[in-house]
Amino acid sequence: MDREVIIRADNIVKKFGDRTILSGISLDIYKGETFVIMGGSGCGKSTFLRHIIGALKPDSGKVHLLGKDLSSLNEDEMDKLRMKIGMCFQSSALFDSMSVGDNVSLGLREHTKLDKSVIDIVVKMKLEMVGLRGFEDMVPSQLSGGMRKRVGLARAIAMDPEIIFYDEPTAGLDPIVAGVIDKLIVDLSKKLNITSVVVTHDMKSVFSIADRVAMFYEGKVLEVGQSEQIKNSKNPMVRQFISGSPDGPIKFFRQKDDYLERLIA
């Protein structure tokens, strides 16, 4: 069965100065799947995420999002497209001066002509979905880290997006709360038929939510496949990353000679 491609990255290259961050990433992400991008710090996964939401432009290569070539869109067209996607940030990115309800309804108030009474009902519906019934009048500082993440999630789904992007959704959470967030990601994806793209290096999270997984290493896709396939990968780098072993082909420290050369450069 042919699956509908909802995001296509075609040979994306990005450099910051003389450092190559992405060196030719090509990936297809399908409608309705939960796609996880994993890899160590600095492997380019968050930079890649910024490219597929149009926040960064590649030096070369193309991104197609919901059938549109991002390089061909003007600002207005890009804004319209962004209304169809939701973002869940690592830090939750809530406005501390606003109530939970106002944080969730921000996009609806800014981009629609809906009456306040209708927006208030949407907010209640979304907070119910993330298990925060009755929290609309609280402010973010009164909430725990896990609750803040759930408010961020309610805000991400407020405008019924077709795709949600998650950047390290379980970072800094205890294992139980992380499990709650993982379950929510899966439930919302399946119930609302949302495509989810999750960037993480939380291994427990990867294999509890992913339909497919891509492992990034030094700006390249090392391996991509079904969750089980990656879990049982024979690639020594993938195996090392999953097991979290300090010994293996992935070196944490650069070569000593390189360090000495840099000192006297």
């Binding site: 209708v118 009902i121 519906m125 019924d160």
Partner: peptide
């Protein structure tokens, strides 16, 4: 029907 449609019917 999207969420705003459902909310409108509730209203």
């Amino acid at each position: 029907v999207d969420s705003s449609g459902l909310a409108t019917l509730v209203e």
